[in-house]
Design a protein around this nucleic acid. Sequence first.
DNA 1: GGGCAGCGATACCGTGGAGGTATGGACACC
DNA 2: GGTGTCCATACCTCCACGGTATCGCTGCCC
Lengths: 288, 288
Amino acid sequence: MDTVTGLETRELRYFVAVAEELHFGRAAERLGMAQPPLSRAISQLERRVGATLLDRTSRRVTLTEAGQVLLEEGRAALEAVEAAGRRAQRAALAATGQASVVLTAKAGASSELLAKLLDAYAAEPGAATVDVHLCGPGEQERLLRDGRADVALLHRPFDATAGFDTEDLVTEGQVVLLPAGHPLSLRSEITLAEVAELPGLPLPRWPRRDGSFADGPGPQVRDHTQVLQLIALGRACAVLPESAAATLGRDLSAVRVSDAPDVTTVIAWPAHSRSRAVAGLVQAALRL
Amino acid sequence: MDTVTGLETRELRYFVAVAEELHFGRAAERLGMAQPPLSRAISQLERRVGATLLDRTSRRVTLTEAGQVLLEEGRAALEAVEAAGRRAQRAALAATGQASVVLTAKAGASSELLAKLLDAYAAEPGAATVDVHLCGPGEQERLLRDGRADVALLHRPFDATAGFDTEDLVTEGQVVLLPAGHPLSLRSEITLAEVAELPGLPLPRWPRRDGSFADGPGPQVRDHTQVLQLIALGRACAVLPESAAATLGRDLSAVRVSDAPDVTTVIAWPAHSRSRAVAGLVQAALRL
DNA sequence: GGGCAGCGATACCGTGGAGGTATGGACACC
DNA sequence: GGTGTCCATACCTCCACGGTATCGCTGCCC
């Protein structure tokens, strides 16, 4: 019953590649190896786990139940291994004073909070230097998970905080950003349904994790300034947390969206982090 | 900068063994191998991570900063890999209808809640069979982390819920259990300080994670019934959540402890669990 | 201080297994 | 039935993992 598996990351990497491609040949190519050894490695993995992971005919490869589970969990496990290596690496650099704690935040969001946090932490005795890593939406989660970052500012309910420790910092409502002078910009409130129907002002489309875009009418965007620019040009509108609209230029105006869910900015870190610098940052954030 | 590490679990296992033993010879023995290949594997790992992990003289081995980080993170990563294998294994069994979701709870705690939960879930259409795994304090966390269990009932603030998704179920105060007829058993409330001073009734000592016991006057205990028995015998007292005292025999009595922290029973599951059965259990728990 | 014991590193060697090439066999499509 | 696609099998090669022997350093004890 207690079959000790003892999987190797190599096997997991192979399996994830095949499970993602659902094609041994392409997976082998992606892994930079020939197809036969890959086939063998997978069947060996199946023997070791004691379960069929892939149903394969010569025409089609599909995941079994067990395979789906292993894909999901295997990805997480691989990320954990990567994270371990990277964090050790960075700990060594930090010890020699070359680098330090990496904080990641969504570019353009919570910038005021971020500035206050950095100031407050820097004022503490023995504060480490903080590298700030601004990135696109959804990317922070990955950075935190795979060890390239130590702390993140995330926004519920948009970002997945599963598996991290978090502390809530601030909760705020959302507003819709409109071109200045838009007829509705004088309203005191608006509903999501109304926003969705705004003629000529579709919501922009953000890239998904794999970089592709969902279908729809809105313009494709990759970062925050693009959005602001598109709104100013009268080609789009956007629903954002109030603080993101705090420092608006004259060409934009904001209207509160009454039925949009509240957004909570949280500070998040890997569950078992023992870093003094991370703890200090969290303390500083809570004192704000 | 973006040095892709590509660690293997074998290397991590070796490192964790050495880091725990702080002795290459003993670690090699524990791993069932000779010492020289272990030394080599570690230095190879150090080259790969790009950092010294262990400071070694011929007399003493100590962890560097980076080593401490890798020990902590590496353990977690190894557990994640194990968990991936085990969960895939169990998913295969579940698909053939042989086994199913494993729920773990502290033996003797929340038994009424547990019974209600199992009943409520079993009444649902399409409910999977639930294996209940009762275990000693602190053990559930490990089971959940390494994939032997799918859901756990945990008790804040005693159990570490870091890295899991949780939902709060009930919060309750704590009581001290005394032998029936004890002079203080007629009091309506008592303080922790008073409990600590009770003449002849020390608090029992639970085993730590490694199985050893802290020093102190109290009797060593390993499970809940031992505690109840010792109290009935007039050899100890214990501070427990109210619900644990709900079904007392005639030989025990409970007094509310006014300044003990509230205990929250939570249902916890691995952060990225996609299992329908787990989701169903959580739903059922929240409806209680 | 010299001898000794403990411990990690180095040198060298053998074997298992990971990966490569060639080919077989099943299936879909024309 | 021919052909192309795709995974599995057969067979070979070579690297690297693990084993044995030994060195070199360090602290300890007489």
